[in-house]
Write a protein that binds this DNA or RNA. Structure first.
Lengths: 219, 219
DNA sequence: GGATTTTGGAGAGATACACTATCCATGTGG
DNA sequence: CCACATGGATAGTGTATCTCTCCAAAATCC
């Protein structure tokens, strides 16, 4: 097919496809003439993958390219690819020497140790978590840090469930893509789910007939 | 204090503070002259709050303003404020009539019903979740949808833990701020935690020499 | 077979966002 | 007294993600 059909089938404007090709997110079509190229089903899938990461997963084009190149890299283990994908999607923290930073890193280290997790020192998620600890402290929300244990337990369960799901698959490529998508789209997934559960919990705690009745004057 | 000290104490450049005031994220100082204004501790806290949402929570300035105005609005119940904050942080889905959209919405509705959740039809997290379902389907990752139940169960637990932590507080304002911060920073928190847990799970599944003993901390 | 549309490729332009920089009349602090 | 800070407004910067424009060659329509 040519670019017009590719555009229609994938639901992506032609100029955007050209842009993605320029940016190296998707390969160009097979050249069959000075101004003709042919695209196939693989291009459609790749394009959908890019759109999923960019639109749904909210990754930047640059980050998407990194993740895709990890997926493409031959001879990498699933573990390695996941590491690269994780590093790519984890926002880099500007390591400011704000007060309490060392303490926060210690909190993270202890949490990881308590869980028995094996996580590289270089894993950027450590800094991301430490930054959150610092932020909560800084805002006087220390009591919210008590939920860290819950979050850790829950994260463990999610990771296990996800890996189990892709473990059933055949073929390394399929596993890799599944794992990376789980990483990228999983953030949005748990986010949406958390909001639904929170809306219900909030309703139950503050609006339901069982709890304290809301202040009628507050409306 | 004047703006210079505010800048130092909060770790935010002066021009940025001015920008935030212009954008209505923080109130201007108390005017005490044609070109003099005074700021106090409340301004510091507000500024830190803004930075937490913008830098750590990755909210846009516009979204941050929405959330803050919800916090500020007097006479709103905690439930209402949470609803506004949720709507603000949930990315709006461009309701395309892509194939399978109706089916995806039905999946969401059934999930919510199965959980016994009380969630408004208008809650944007429904669409966000439906979009994720569509995306997974579109990419041929249907088997990953099996983990939806796990995510739902886990989200329920997190929401309960968070509300419980906040429930111990005194004062509505404090509860509101805690709940909103939980919503906004919770996304980053579960994200970081997920990556740590996933790194460990991946290590265990693909790198470990042998199966390890079950984690003593897991429950 | 001629008119119209599409194509590939590349550079320039558009738009949005979150700051920064500059200016200047007015204050403050040493 | 005087360098420096302040508040307020306007303009400019850098980044990111497209989107537009151009052109000759190719394809499609009638």
């Amino acid at each position: 097919m040519r670019i017009g059909e590719l555009s229609r089938r994938a639901g992506v404007p032609v100029p955007t496809i050209k842009y993605y090709v320029r940016e190296g997110l998707i390969p160009g079509g097979e050249r069959i003439g000075p101004n003709q190229a042919r695209y196939d089903e693989a291009h459609i899938h790749r394009l959908k993958l890019v759109r999923a990461m960019v639109e749904v997963g909210k990754l930047s084009v640059a980050t998407t390219r990194e993740v895709l190149s990890a997926i493409d890299s031959p001879g990498s283990s699933l573990h390695e690819v996941l590491g690269i994908a994780q590093a790519a999607v984890t926002p880099q923290v500007t390591a400011s020497d704000r007060a309490g930073w060392t303490l926060a890193e210690q909190v993270v280290t202890e949490l990881v140790a308590r869980r028995g997790w094996v996580v590289k020192e270089s894993n950027p998620a450590r800094q991301a978590l430490a930054q959150l600890v610092v932020t909560f402290r800084d805002l006087g929300q220390d009591d919210l840090l008590g939920v860290l244990e819950d979050y850790a337990a829950v994260a463990e369960r999610l990771a296990a469930a996800e890996l189990a799901a892709i473990g059933h698959r055949e073929g390394v490529d399929s596993k890799v893509e599944g794992a990376v998508l789980g990483t990228v789209l999983g953030d949005a997934l748990i986010g949406a789910m958390r909001r639904l559960a929170q809306a219900d919990a909030s309703h139950r705690a503050f609006e339901g007939a069982a709890g304290r009745a809301p202040d009628p004057a507050a409306r």
